[in-house]
């Protein structure tokens, strides 16, 4: 599903954020990206949805070489990749339902599809009774659920999450992880960057550790360190 071959990403000022990474992630896998601050986790994730392009190496997503993808095709790539932010990035003036619907509206989904899929996904994330609330009326955990609903409403093949529990307390984080686990069990590949030792150690999924951009550990059913 995701394959990196000798991928190197260098930012301006010669910062090597990812160095010669070779990783192969299969369909339906759940992968934790761990490593110290600045080790390149976010960069790794941004490379996967073409927010960044590598200086060297090749990246395949769903069998396609996305490092050489024409700029106009990038949106269509992203329709297959859900993205969850640490700070949720909900639109404050839109209701929960509108925030989720927005993701479908802007890729031109017809109205009747939106009307059906939005309540269904909000049901799945456990927010059926908060559809008409605005984000400030929700707890952090609930906001993150909305953000997950928005990322998953189009049923992407891949879900990328950059520290999705970074702004949440441990108990709320457990709820979010249960949700991501459920989504993963539907066959969605999940790649999640995290600092949360507890989560990684309880979930026991594949762990890829980065150190100054290099993959220093790639462990099935791994632990934080």
């Amino acid at each position: 599903m995701i394959k990196l071959e000798n991928v190197t990403k260098v930012y301006k000022g010669d910062v090597v954020a990812v160095r010669d990474a070779t990783v192969d992630i299969g369909k339906g896998e759940f992968v934790f990206l761990v490593g110290q601050s600045g080790s390149g986790k976010s960069t790794f994730i941004r490379l996967l949805n073409r927010e960044e392009t590598p200086e060297h190496g090749t990246i395949y997503v769903a069998g396609k070489d996305i490092s050489s993808l024409g700029a106009w095709k990038v949106p269509y790539l992203r329709r297959n990749i859900g993205y969850i932010f640490q700070d949720f990035k909900l639109l404050p003036k839109k209701t929960v339902a509108e925030n989720v619907a927005f993701a479908l509206e802007v890729i031109g989904k017809p109205r009747h599809v939106i009307r059906k899929q939005v309540p269904a996904i909000l049901e799945l994330v456990g927010l059926a009774d908060k559809m008409e609330n605005i984000p400030t009326e929700l707890s952090g955990g609930e906001q993150q659920r909305v953000s997950i609903a928005r990322a998953f409403v189009n049923r992407p093949l891949i879900l990328l999450a950059d520290e999705p529990t970074g702004n949440l307390d441990p108990q709320t984080s457990v709820g979010i992880m249960k949700l991501l686990d459920r989504i993963n069990r539907t066959g969605t590949t999940v790649v999640m960057a995290t600092h949360d030792r507890g989560i990684v150690d309880t979930m026991r999924r594949r762990v890829i550790e980065l150190d100054r951009g290099q993959v220093v550990r790639d462990q099935a059913r791994g632990v934080y360190e």
Binding site: N49, A71, W72, P75, Y76, L77, R78, R79, N80, I81, Y83, K89, L91, F102, A103, V106, I107, G108, R150, A151, N154
Partner: peptide
């Protein structure tokens, strides 16, 4: 930012 991340086209 959201539009871009969910795959809205440039023209859209």
């Amino acid at each position: 930012e959201i539009m871009k991340v969910v795959g809205a086209t440039n023209w859209f």
